[in-house]
Design a protein around this nucleic acid. Sequence first.
DNA 1: CGCCTGTTCTAGATCGATCTAGTTGACTGT
DNA 2: ACAGTCAACTAGATCGATCTAGAACAGGCG
Lengths: 337, 337
Amino acid sequence: MERDPKTGTEAGRRPTLADVAAAAGVSRALASIVMRGASGASPATRERVLETARQLGYRPDSRARLLRSSRTRLLGITFMVAEPFHGDIVESIYAAAEDAGFEVLLSAVGGRRQEDRAVETLLDAGVEAALMISPSSTPEALAVLARQVPVISLLSAAAVPGVDAVRSDDAEGIRTAVEHLLSLGHRDIAHVDGGSAVASAERRAGYEESMRRAGLAEYIRVVPGGPHEAEGIAAAGKLFADRKPSAVLAFNDRCALGILEASWRAGLKVPDDLSVVGYDDSQLARLDHVRLTTVSQDAAGLAEAAVGCAAARIRTEEPGELVLQPRLVVRSTTGPA
Amino acid sequence: MERDPKTGTEAGRRPTLADVAAAAGVSRALASIVMRGASGASPATRERVLETARQLGYRPDSRARLLRSSRTRLLGITFMVAEPFHGDIVESIYAAAEDAGFEVLLSAVGGRRQEDRAVETLLDAGVEAALMISPSSTPEALAVLARQVPVISLLSAAAVPGVDAVRSDDAEGIRTAVEHLLSLGHRDIAHVDGGSAVASAERRAGYEESMRRAGLAEYIRVVPGGPHEAEGIAAAGKLFADRKPSAVLAFNDRCALGILEASWRAGLKVPDDLSVVGYDDSQLARLDHVRLTTVSQDAAGLAEAAVGCAAARIRTEEPGELVLQPRLVVRSTTGPA
DNA sequence: CGCCTGTTCTAGATCGATCTAGTTGACTGT
DNA sequence: ACAGTCAACTAGATCGATCTAGAACAGGCG
């Protein structure tokens, strides 16, 4: 077996804490104290150990660390690869988790792979909490899960005791969108809903109430839609065939994109002939050629709240439900009536 | 501490292998043999141990298993959350890995989080190989990485010794697309390239050669583009202002989508006034309202090849570069000239 | 009966870290 | 000078699995 004459450790193998300790002339325990920044080491030794660690290229083996300590500092996330907005949130969670001193483990849901399998993988890896984006499991399954590990549901209001939820106030989001359209002089404002998707009911209710409060009850028109482009297109077709409104509130960005495409194909100019508002402020909405006016769910804010919520739960506090205020982002798909 | 009278293990805690062994009346070692399906246990004991494990709801702790054994059976993947086609591949890798007996660990690249950080996380978790989708690291960085762990580069031909590459034959893919258009009677076929994106040069070269070979050298027209919708739109604008071709070959699906949108907005009918071909066969292309004719990179095939390649590398030292043949998927955006 | 072969099973070391319970030695106050 | 306090450090147990080496026991054969 080859050995590095300087360090005495085998070549090719990853250096361990014991190697660092031996090279620095201290015990493993002290080296451990230094590596995790705990108190109990003199500044001089600390410096020396850190320096030898750097020289050897030491990186702690997370498996061993996790095995021993109960605090794994690991957050698990389940998400759907096909959902752009999930991707936005995942990116923000990485940032928020890093700031909070957590590592992140991802587990994708979709296709052949079901949510329960995804969560199981995370648990086996030893995560301290599971952040589930738009969980599709039954309340019962979530409740069972929540007994093993703190569970935070993102984007959907989990009516399960023991499961915390972080989401934004959908009714309020829709209200700001309606107000924006009103201020532009629109009155004939239709809504394409999300069908059976999560949060669809809340958004529809928000739309209806906002319209009524503005004295536009007679203009209320809800067209059945869904969370994907195709459903937006179909809904737009129905809408145009019936009576073209001056503005449409879509269930989400993808649905709005469908409406935009249907408009272009029908030769309608946006926003001159039709104003369109989406929901989510996903990457899609921000693309140069779309520039969709949309209600921002503030992925960064949601992510930060979710990570904070997880951290609180791990400390055995009781956070419960957290509702963020959404914010309207005006871009180029809305204009005067 | 509460104890379950039946099993003798503490309530609330996850049962360990020792608990199972005690409950079944065998040694830990034997229980281990049974759990991992190794030989050396009588059928009767095997059955008994498995049954008690099931009753206790035992799940092996992967951290402990991984710590001890060098075979972690863990594959790491780096990918970009914002790329739909990466999502397709990730889903397929999950399936392929499961069939091959591997677990999958995801690490997202993008935004604040760089590729080297993402890979480091995977290494710390103990993956046996790293599958990097469209790696953006420098060849030097990849080479350094490859000395620590088998690295498989997906979608881009890594010219780094020690790094295996799994990709599809881009020139061939473009060729089949050109032939499809020729058979429909098209002659004025333009190409919107991918700018500085990976594989852009290969596809452009494939286009030029196919055109020349068909005796259509005079029709060769390459418009600078890029891998996103906005760039497709801009290129289409330039193309239509100059002289509208009868068909366009886009660098990828997102670029093709941009061209489609520009066409709709310009009042052009697809495929009557213009045929459009994409590349990737991502989810985007399959959406009902898009139905894009595209060159399929066969995410499932790539994933399977990559996982197989990783498995081979882990066992020994062989594979090198693997090139798959792409396949044209004809949908609704191409028609007779 | 004794020797050999092979199967079934177990004790104990081990992976790389953390954590508990000390030990050591310097410094303080009376 | 002596007990008491505190910071700096260490030995050894520990987490939950795997793995090695060898024990116990069966059956087959001369």
